[in-house]
């Protein structure tokens, strides 16, 4: 299946209650697929094309406030438009799933694949001290599996979860195994606004605290939650790291191209491993920290001008050399270029 279509099907199967979106290349297949499948007949899931990205994210805010599994998707410029709503959802501590099929920027940029929204995804994006949980699929299979995982994490931590995909994963076709249809939620959450019961206080969903003391309490609660997330939810994959003297690191589609470069390096007898973060927040800090001691250098490969490399440097904390190689503007690095960069910047540098 095509990445975007598989992801849309996964949303239905994950028992989502609602999808609100607005078309933009290269992720329009998500809303197209959902409209064509019309899951309202099958599961009761609402699919709506909003009048804009801003409207879509606020519809998600509303549905999430009612304790529903709500989701939206867009590509980079559209995700920028959603940042205000996203900050409100994070502030109000509501669960939702957001998919960003990244294209190159800044501005309207180009519709070709990119990873230039890493900072926006993992450092907040909107205003205020908040974090999204960020999952980075590298295959169509992971695009599917992460939809279910994203809803689970969103409700476990009452926090927005972003699936950071890109034009390659969204547009490519691969074999995929779909999970069984999950039931929609029947649980009534105590934080959800579903009508006041006579014997209970009203529930108010808000991100507004006029008193600084109250706002600080919210911030502290959020920070405590993020520490929990960092403790429990780190996910990553390693290849050939046992005897590695050098390390590639990359996420998403770029990690696959980099894996090819690693295979080519191994054929040449260079002891290179690959660490692929699957969660970008929480970042696999400990994994890098532990590996750093045995390594002569790390090359991060990204389709941007150097974003994840900053987190790698923080994790490694000076224990070994860290360099970045990137192509941007929708250009995709080739395995040969990546291997060459490893040889020039790390091994020979």
């Amino acid at each position: 299946m095509k990445g975007n279509e598989a992801l849309a099907e996964a949303a239905i199967r994950a028992g989502a209650d609602a999808y609100f979106g607005y078309p933009i290349t290269p992720q329009s297949e998500i809303i197209e697929y959902l409209m064509a499948e019309n899951p309202e007949e099958l599961t009761g899931m609402v699919v709506l094309q909003a009048e804009s990205e801003v409207a879509a994210i606020n519809m998600v805010y509303g549905a999430a406030g009612c304790g529903k599994r709500a989701m939206t998707s867009s590509s980079s410029p559209g995700i920028s438009l959603k940042q205000e709503g996203l900050s409100y959802i994070a502030g109000a501590e509501l669960p939702c799933v957001l998919v960003n099929v990244v294209r190159a920027g800044p501005g309207l940029g180009t519709i070709q694949p990119s990873q230039s929204d890493y900072f926006q995804a993992v450092k907040g994006g909107g205003h205020g001290d908040y974090k999204l949980i960020v999952l980075a699929p590298a295959t169509v299979q992971e695009s599917v599996d992460y939809v279910k995982l994203a809803f689970d994490l969103a409700f476990k931590y009452r926090n927005p979860v972003m699936i950071l995909s890109d034009g390659i994963i969204g547009q490519m076709m691969e074999k995929v195994e779909l999970f069984e249809q999950q039931p929609r939620l029947t649980e009534e959450f105590e934080w959800a606004t579903v009508g006041k019961k006579p014997n209970k206080d009203s529930v108010i969903v808000t991100s507004l605290q006029l008193q600084s003391e109250e706002q600080e309490k919210v911030n502290l609660r959020l920070q405590a939650k993020y520490r929990e997330v960092e403790k429990n939810e780190v996910r990553y994959e390693t290849h050939n790291c046992e005897d590695a003297e050098y390390l590639f690191t990359a996420f998403g589609s770029c990690a696959r191209i980099t894996r090819k470069a690693m295979e080519m390096a191994r054929e040449k007898g260079i002891k290179v491993g690959l660490l692929r973060p699957q969660t970008l927040y929480p970042f696999p800090v400990d994994a890098f920290h532990q590996l750093a001691g045995q390594l002569k250098g790390i090359l991060t490969v990204e389709m941007n001008a150097g974003q994840m490399v900053e987190d790698v440097k923080l994790a490694v904390n000076g224990q070994t050399k860290v360099e970045h190689f990137g192509r941007f503007g929708g250009m995709i690095p080739s395995p040969e270029e990546i291997l060459n960069a490893m040889e020039q910047k790390i091994i020979g540098g």
């Binding site: 290269p26 390659i168 547009q171 490519m172 691969e174 191209i257 894996r259 090819k260 080739s334």
Partner: peptide
């Protein structure tokens, strides 16, 4: 794995796609 050109090409002009068929799991689709 199948990876199309979906950019300006798709909106007229040349089109291309990469198809990989393998016994082993496929690393890079590009």
């Amino acid at each position: 794995s199948w990876m199309p050109s979906y950019g300006p090409e798709m909106r007229g002009g040349t089109a291309n796609c990469t198809a990989i068929i393998s016994d082993e799991p496929i690393s890079s689709p590009v």
